[in-house]
Write a protein that binds this DNA or RNA. Structure first.
Length: 283
DNA sequence: CTAGGATCCTGTCAGC
DNA sequence: TGCTGACAGGATCCTA
């Protein structure tokens, strides 16, 4: 899915385009994609605030309810008004007619513009909660701190609880650190010069420090460039999202040359996920 | 408690 | 062409 930087990109885009807009209608095309309170309760409400925790987007409404959006693997948010804004899982929907066959939920604003929640695989959802429900939500309650809010001591301590696991499995664990997904786990391991399949017990304190720095650095670079994308989607201002094209050192570059040492980037399987690395730099 | 695998779902692609 | 299995930017549930 969309990892932390993509969700942050969506948050910033929707903040700019939909804040203070009033929801005139809501269309739930796939029941499974809607959770929590009945969707009827968002009708007539104004969007008052956005927030984000890890990969979860939070949208506050004027009646005090919150919509928690989790995009999981293939979710995307698309705003269609005078300008179009699309972010999340990159695919043809970014330029397709809306609603598309992957649209699961959409909102009509009273100014005639629309917000679409698309999700090919239906793993994602929008959950309507009150303030208490938000505080008690299991996912949010167990979510580890944001990478920038975690000290190196704390990151080190959290790693130590999973000595026997492959490093990558722990980086992907949202109870250990929030927001890291398959792309940034691989990229951070490259920056810290460690093989993602290494057991945590083999990770030195110096490497762990470099990992935390690397996670923050690759994510910040991605946010600064508007989130990653693999395809040719064009953002509202006409520029392309381009993290993978410009910054990815290993992710989906298997078969290509390492930009540091020239070795061939390899792909393998770690913790059940496709994993990319340079055998020379991350030996 | 941890670790690892199956599972939710749809679509695409490689290899017969 | 048609079929089959593998895989996919995530997280949870079940089992050992």
């Amino acid at each position: 899915m969309p990892e932390l930087p993509e969700v942050e990109t969506i948050k910033r885009g929707l903040e700019r385009l939909t804040l203070n807009k009033r929801i005139a209608r809501v269309h739930v095309l796939c029941e499974k994609s809607w959770r929590g309170y009945d969707a009827e309760r968002v009708i007539g409400q104004t969007i008052t605030k956005f927030d984000r925790r890890g990969k979860a987007l939070l949208i506050c409404l004027s009646n005090g309810l919150w919509m928690m959006v989790h995009l999981r693997m293939t979710g995307q948010m698309i705003y269609a008004g005078a300008e179009k804004f699309a972010a999340g899982h990159p695919d043809g929907n970014f330029t397709a007619e809306m609603p598309s066959k992957h649209t699961r939920i959409y909102f009509d604003f009273d100014d005639g513009t629309h917000l679409y929640f698309n999700d090919q695989r239906k793993f994602g959802f929008i959950k309507l909660l009150d303030e208490l429900g938000l505080q008690e939500d299991e996912f949010l309650r167990k979510l580890a701190p944001e990478p920038w809010d975690m000290s190196k001591d704390e990151f080190w301590a959290r790693l130590q609880k999973h000595q026997k696991s492959p490093l990558k499995a722990v980086l992907l664990d949202q109870h250990v650190i929030a927001g890291v997904g398959n792309i940034y786990a691989d990229e951070a391991c490259f920056v810290a010069k460690i093989y993602p399949g290494a057991r945590v017990s083999e990770v030195s304190r110096e490497t762990a420090d470099a990992l935390l720095d690397g996670i923050c650095a690759v994510m910040q670079a991605s946010i600064d460039s508007g989130g990653s994308t693999m395809k040719d989607y064009v953002r509202a201002d006409g520029t392309k999202g381009s993290y993978l094209e410009k910054f990815a050192q290993v992710f989906r570059r298997d078969g290509d040359k390492c930009r540091v040492c020239g070795s061939k980037i390899l792909k393998t399987r770690v913790a059940g996920r496709g994993t990319h690395y340079c055998p020379e730099c991350q030996g």
